Simulated assay, not measured.
Amino acid sequence: MSRSGETEYDSEVDIDGLLSDEERADRQTSTGEREQPATAADTETSGGLRSRLPSPSLPSPGLPGFSLGGLALSLAVCVAAFLAAGVVVPLGGVAGLVGVFGAAFLLGLLGRGRYLELVVAGAGTAAVGALLDQLLLAAVADIAAPLAAISGAAGLLVAVIGCYLGRDLRAGLTQSVG
């Protein structure tokens, strides 16, 4: 450190490369003049740290309409409904699927259900629930993979149907007659 109160900088660190274009334009040079904004060629080579980080508010580029927040909501509602249906409805393994259907229907009715998020949540909840329900049988008889695949497919199917019916009912309730 310098005794004059100035901070020393590592000469190998490119400060301008870490700054965004707006911060770079606002930064003053040592002579008091404003720096010129970067050109398109400059931003392609050193886009700044913020441009390199993924934005959490944007959906995944390959999956339109998919968000982690929506997946978390769908998963939480599906798991809660799966557990509640297993306690209330005495139908064995089918009760969990009834719960997933009810959760997807409710989310579709409220306008919060997106197919892709509900498919992932419903299939995952049903597959894991079936494995945990039949844990001893799955471990001893070596049927864990087929059991998870069948339960996951059933969960996927009931989630899609539930979301579709919930959206259909919501559309029918909100549209004017005539």
Rank of each mutant, 00 (worst) to 15 (best):
M1S: 06
G5V: 06
G5R: 05
T7M: 05
T7F: 07
E8R: 11
E12T: 15
L18V: 02
L19C: 07
S20Y: 00
D21W: 06
E23W: 01
R24W: 10
D26R: 15
Q28A: 13
Q28E: 14
Q28R: 13
T29F: 11
S30D: 15
T31W: 08
R34P: 08
R34Y: 09
E35A: 15
Q36D: 10
Q36T: 10
P37G: 09
P37V: 08
P37R: 07
A38F: 14
A38C: 12
T43W: 03
E44L: 12
S46N: 08
S46Q: 10
G47L: 04
L49I: 04
S51P: 06
R52S: 02
R52P: 00
L53H: 02
S55E: 02
P56Y: 00
P56R: 00
P64D: 02
F66G: 02
L68M: 04
L68Q: 02
L68G: 00
G70H: 06
G70L: 05
S74R: 02
L75D: 01
L75K: 01
A76C: 05
V77L: 03
C78I: 03
V79D: 01
F82T: 04
F82Y: 12
A84R: 00
A84V: 03
A85F: 05
A85P: 04
A85S: 08
A85V: 05
G86K: 02
G86Q: 03
V87N: 10
V88A: 13
V89T: 11
P90E: 06
P90H: 03
L91S: 07
G92P: 06
L97F: 15
V98R: 10
V98I: 15
G99P: 05
V100Y: 04
V100T: 08
F101A: 06
F101T: 01
A103N: 01
A104V: 05
F105M: 04
F105L: 10
F105P: 01
L106H: 03
G108C: 14
G111H: 09
G113Q: 06
Y115W: 14
Y115N: 15
V119Y: 05
V119E: 06
V120F: 10
V120D: 09
A121L: 03
A121F: 02
G122S: 11
A123Y: 04
A123T: 07
A123S: 10
G124Y: 01
T125H: 02
A126H: 08
V128E: 07
A130N: 07
L132I: 08
D133I: 06
D133N: 10
L135C: 11
L135N: 13
L135G: 13
L137G: 15
A139T: 14
V140M: 14
A141C: 14
D142K: 09
I143A: 08
A144I: 09
A144P: 09
P146E: 07
A148V: 03
I150S: 12
A154L: 13
G155E: 06
G155Y: 03
G155R: 05
A159F: 01
A159E: 02
V160I: 11
L165V: 11
L165K: 07
G166C: 11
R167P: 08
L169G: 07
L169V: 09
L169C: 07
R170Y: 11
A171V: 15
L173G: 13
Q175L: 14
Q175S: 15
G178N: 15
G178W: 14
